[in-house]
Design a protein around this nucleic acid. Structure first.
Length: 637
RNA sequence: GCCAGCGUAGCUCAGAUGGCAGAGCAACUGAUUUGUAAUCAGUAGGUCGUCGGUUCGACUCCGUCCGCUGGCUCCA
């Protein structure tokens, strides 16, 4: 018999004498409630199975299945259940990896044919059986060599590869029923804890994300500790779908794509073009306020220049080329080159720096066809791009300035965002020293501004490291918007200089940066953020004048004219229809103000505004409405 | 690019197993003159994404191309 000293975190310890003691037994004797809802347990901070044996002293924290961490474990276990079901249904199929992910789980399989959506019901049915059977998850340790033998015998070559790559002495295996998987764990006690799950979709996925390796079948699913939560989740997905900019955009007359024009090319309809115009005007103002100068380069630049900059060498696959008068030209995928030449067109003094050139620059990039998506990934887009050329001493201050700019704009739109620093990619130019310097500058600026960030190794631009700002769409997918990139190489390649106090020429450094990122993508995020109901200052149509009857048309025309003259973006709906019909249409179009004109209004020379939330304002003179709208525009509400 | 799903009227969608292409909304015409989310009636509208094949016959089956959607390490 041994003595075990156990406690729940922050509670008094209890001594238990036993031959051996599992975490479950300890929790029982510590009288922890709701044990049937405990997915796993932290033992001295390490996540473990409930069945794990404790050492002689242990601080325990139960992980309940409804918590985020508990759900992750439940989902991971559900992935194992799915793998078991799939192996039973498709003999000879190979399992690979199956982690829990945000909002669900997946498992990748290799089979003689790709799995299809039609296969899912059968898999779900089989999973149901496994859950019903309430099979316990059991863990065993095995030496890597033994485990390799074990999986080789089953033909599970991917597992063998994983174990070899791990390079550990021993590995852990988890089994439920006849199914055994290589896994770190922990897992839920038994399959019966899975109260609700649903397989959502299948997709192809390369083994280890590498397109040179086999294409696997990935099955995605969700799992919950309570069927109610599954229903809730599915409802939320439906709600998110209503915000989908790919649907809303064309419905609201903002933009469309045309098969006959080409993939990844957006056509802006009048309302969308107006929205862009408002946003771009705002952008220009915000830049001018912050000491940027406007600049503008052409779409076509000689291929020779792209060779000089390194784009031809490093970015060619993403570029379009054409020939003009037997000269090769490249369509710009970035805006920097013209700005370099603008800088170089004069001798620059240290007194002139920093130079900040801003351009709403339209670029073309050849994105792979499969990644195109609505406004979020397109082949032609406009960046709110700027290049800051400064002395090395100014670099930190300039980066911090841009970070503040980003914070202002994102705060202005009420966006939450994540920050990421990306480091040197395999295909890149420049010396190690410059890369270190540049990466260090980014990290320092982040830390000076006390910002939290993730590291994304090897994902930088070919000419320098970058800070990325990521926003989430309605479905929780994150998209890069703002980015700040340090560049020591282009100033070198273009021999940019400034004359310093010492009278000598020195090399400036450069920052590439965008705030919104691509106007297209940003508008996509905006549409989803506002669910298409834009605030007054952004709304392409701010007001629609609605007549009750034909008698009211002359006055309504006056009102419309008055609003137009005051630069309100207004439309008139004088059709011979019932008011309810016209209100409905304006509502569906999410127009901020409906201006109702009936006999009463005509008599009193007033208008009755109806807000898109359904609220009626009391009748007022047109002037008052104009002031109200103007005020909202000024305050950008 | 690769894997899966999808493409029928301007929009949303029906159209078992191959046998003359349908509805609602929108559009147009007329009636109605309307007070806060759909007034009524009529008319018109389609090379079933493209091109090719199989077949007596293809929206339907096969192939090609075009386009759209989801996904392509959140690491056992």
């Amino acid at each position: 018999m041994k003595a075990f000293l156990v406690r729940i975190k922050d509670k008094p310890a209890q001594e238990i004498t036993a031959e051996r003691l599992s975490a479950r037994e300890a929790l029982q004797s510590l009288q922890v409630g709701g044990l049937d809802r405990v997915a796993a347990v932290r033992v001295n901070g390490v996540p473990c199975d409930l069945s794990c044996d404790l050492g002689n002293e242990a601080t325990l924290e139960p992980i309940y299945v409804h918590t985020e961490e508990g759900l992750g474990i439940l989902r991971h276990s559900t992935a194992h259940v799915m793998a078991m079901a799939v192996k039973e249904l498709f003999p000879g199929i190979k399992v690979t990896i199956g982690p829990a992910i945000e909002n669900g789980f997946y498992y990748d399989f290799d089979y003689e044919r790709p799995l299809k959506e039609d296969d899912l019901p059968a898999i779900e049915e089989k999973m149901e059986e496994i859950v019903e059977a309430d099979l316990p998850f059991t863990r065993q340790e095995m030496s890597s060599q033994e485990a390799i033998g074990f999986f080789s015998d089953q033909g599970e070559t991917y597992k063998v590869e994983l174990i070899q790559d791990l390079g550990a002495e021993s590995v852990s295996l988890y089994s439920q029923g006849s199914f055994t998987d290589l896994c770190r764990g922990p897992h839920i006690p038994s399959t019966g804890m899975i109260k609700a799950f649903h397989l959502t979709h299948v997709a192809g996925a390369y083994w280890r994300g590498d397109e040179n390796r086999p294409m696997l079948s990935r099955v995605y699913g969700v799992a919950f500790s309570d069927p109610k939560n599954l229903k809730k989740h599915l409802r939320q997905l439906e709600e998110a779908q209503k915000r989908n900019h790919v649907k809303l955009g064309p419905q609201l007359g903002l933009f469309n794509t045309y098969e006959e024009i080409g993939a990844g090319m957006i056509v802006w309809h009048p309302k969308g073009a107006m929205l862009r115009h408002v946003l771009e005007t705002f952008e220009v103002q915000e830049h001018l306020k912050r000491g940027y100068e406007l600049a503008r380069g052409p779409q076509l630049l000689k291929t020779e220049l792209w060779k000089k900059s390194g784009h031809f060498e490093n970015y060619r696959e993403n570029m379009y080329f054409t020939e003009v008068d037997e000269q090769s030209y490249g369509i710009k995928p970035m805006n920097c080159l013209a700005h370099m030449l603008i800088y170089r067109s004069e001798i620059r003094s240290y007194r002139d720096l920093p130079k900040r050139y801003f351009e709403l620059g339209t670029v073309h990039r050849h994105e792979r066809s499969g990644v195109l998506h609505g406004l979020f990934r397109v082949r032609e887009f406009t960046q709110d791009d700027a290049h800051i050329i400064c002395t090395p001493d100014q670099l930190n201050g300039e980066i911090k300035g841009v970070l503040d700019f980003v914070k202002d704009i994102m705060g202005f739109f009420d966006f939450e965002y994540d920050l990421e620093i990306s480091t040197r990619p395999r295909k890149s130019i420049g010396s190690d020293q410059d890369w270190e310097l540049a990466t260090g500058a980014l990290i320092r600026a982040m830390e000076d501004n006390r910002l939290e960030y993730d590291m994304n190794e090897g994902d930088g631009a070919f000419y320098g490291p970058k800070i990325d700002v990521k926003l989430k769409d309605a479905l929780g997918r994150s998209w890069q918007c703002a980015t700040i990139q340090c560049d020591f190489t282009l100033p070198d390649k273009f021999d940019l200089t400034y004359v310093d106090k010492d009278g000598e020429r020195h090399r400036p450094v450069m920052i590439h940066r965008v705030i919104l990122g691509a106007v297209e993508r940003f508008i996509g995020v905006l549409i989803e953020h506002y669910a298409g109901a834009f605030p007054t200052w952004l709304a392409p149509v701010q007001a629609v004048v609605l007549t009750v009857t034909d008698r009211n048309i002359p006055f309504a025309q006056n009102v419309t004219k008055g609003l137009e003259d005051a630069d309100v973006r207004v439309e008139g709906d004088f059709r011979n229809e019932k008011l309810g019909f016209k209100v409905r249409e304006a509502q569906v179009q999410k127009i901020p103000y409906m201006v109702i004109i009936g006999d009463k209004e005509c008599e009193n020379n007033q208008v009755t505004p109806r807000l898109k939330n359904g609220q009626n304002l009391s009748p007022m003179p047109v002037k008052e409405l104009i002031d109200r709208i103007k005020d909202e525009c000024e305050q950008r509400r």
